Amino acid sequence: MNMKKKAAAACVAVMAAVSLPMGIVPVQPVQADLITDVIGGLQVKSALSKQIKHYDTTKEGQSEIYQSVTKQTGVLHNEYYNERLASIMNRLSASIAQTDPSIKTLPYRWYVSPDTTFNAACTMGHVMVVNKGMFDLVSNDDEIAVVLGHEMGHGQKHHVANSTQKKVNVEIGKMVLADTIGGSGLNSLILDTVSNQIETVHIDRAAEWEADNLSFDYVTRAGYNPGATAAIWQRVME
């Protein structure tokens, strides 16, 4: 029975229970299943919300995220790339702290991955992964700072966590419809939305626009050339 039929059956049962004495209204198994699934879905949603907040706002959660994503991407142990990344991240972090002191509570943790493509990403918990290809393809640190500032804008405004929560809510709804809430399905959901978030997370246009504007402010206060903002996105388009 699909969700609409289940919901209709549940509504009929509730209305009948209001108008008839208890004991006269039969409780059909499908109605009980629906109520159980919905309650179970709400409980799972609440539990996952707490887990996402743990990953996104605590040092313990950050450490768990770091361990997970570094296993996924690999880590490039190279002094040149690491020092170059640290220099940019430290300057941007100091810039952000001038207007958003929350960064002091959970400083960013960053590393270089061996991937040769042009990309960088900020996960939940302020973990920044920057591909080796970013440095190989762009020699200007001002331009790289714009990209990293954009990603830090996502981090400061919890865009990744919010997007992950939306994805989780959709998956929970699917589990309710399929009567598979909890158990191994739940474990898979957590694994997919946390360990693989770099590939699966989707940031909406409004959040991207906000991150762009924040990046401009961050790089300007950090002393980078604000003209690099237009330059790097033109380079990306080309």
Score class of each variant (00 low, 15 high):
residue 2 N to A: 03
residue 3 M to T: 04
residue 6 K to W: 00
residue 15 M to I: 11
residue 18 V to T: 05
residue 20 L to N: 10
residue 20 L to H: 10
residue 24 I to L: 15
residue 29 P to Q: 07
residue 29 P to K: 12
residue 35 I to F: 13
residue 43 Q to A: 11
residue 46 S to R: 14
residue 51 Q to H: 13
residue 51 Q to C: 08
residue 52 I to C: 05
residue 52 I to M: 11
residue 53 K to P: 00
residue 53 K to E: 13
residue 55 Y to Q: 06
residue 58 T to P: 01
residue 59 K to H: 12
residue 60 E to D: 14
residue 61 G to K: 04
residue 63 S to H: 06
residue 63 S to K: 14
residue 64 E to R: 11
residue 64 E to G: 05
residue 68 S to Y: 01
residue 73 T to S: 06
residue 74 G to H: 02
residue 78 N to M: 13
residue 80 Y to R: 10
residue 83 E to L: 15
residue 83 E to D: 15
residue 84 R to C: 12
residue 88 I to W: 11
residue 89 M to W: 03
residue 90 N to G: 09
residue 100 D to E: 13
residue 101 P to R: 09
residue 103 I to W: 03
residue 104 K to F: 06
residue 106 L to C: 12
residue 106 L to Q: 12
residue 108 Y to L: 14
residue 115 D to T: 01
residue 119 N to Y: 08
residue 122 C to K: 08
residue 122 C to F: 11
residue 125 G to M: 12
residue 126 H to V: 03
residue 129 V to D: 02
residue 134 M to C: 10
residue 139 S to V: 05
residue 140 N to D: 15
residue 143 E to M: 14
residue 146 V to L: 06
residue 148 L to H: 05
residue 151 E to N: 08
residue 153 G to M: 07
residue 154 H to V: 00
residue 154 H to C: 05
residue 156 Q to P: 00
residue 157 K to Q: 09
residue 163 S to D: 11
residue 165 Q to I: 11
residue 176 V to G: 00
residue 178 A to M: 10
residue 179 D to V: 02
residue 185 G to H: 14
residue 192 D to Y: 04
residue 194 V to P: 02
residue 196 N to G: 08
residue 206 A to E: 15
residue 207 A to M: 11
residue 208 E to Y: 11
residue 212 D to F: 10
residue 215 S to V: 05
residue 216 F to V: 08
residue 221 R to Y: 01
residue 230 A to F: 13
residue 231 A to V: 03
residue 232 I to L: 09
residue 232 I to K: 08
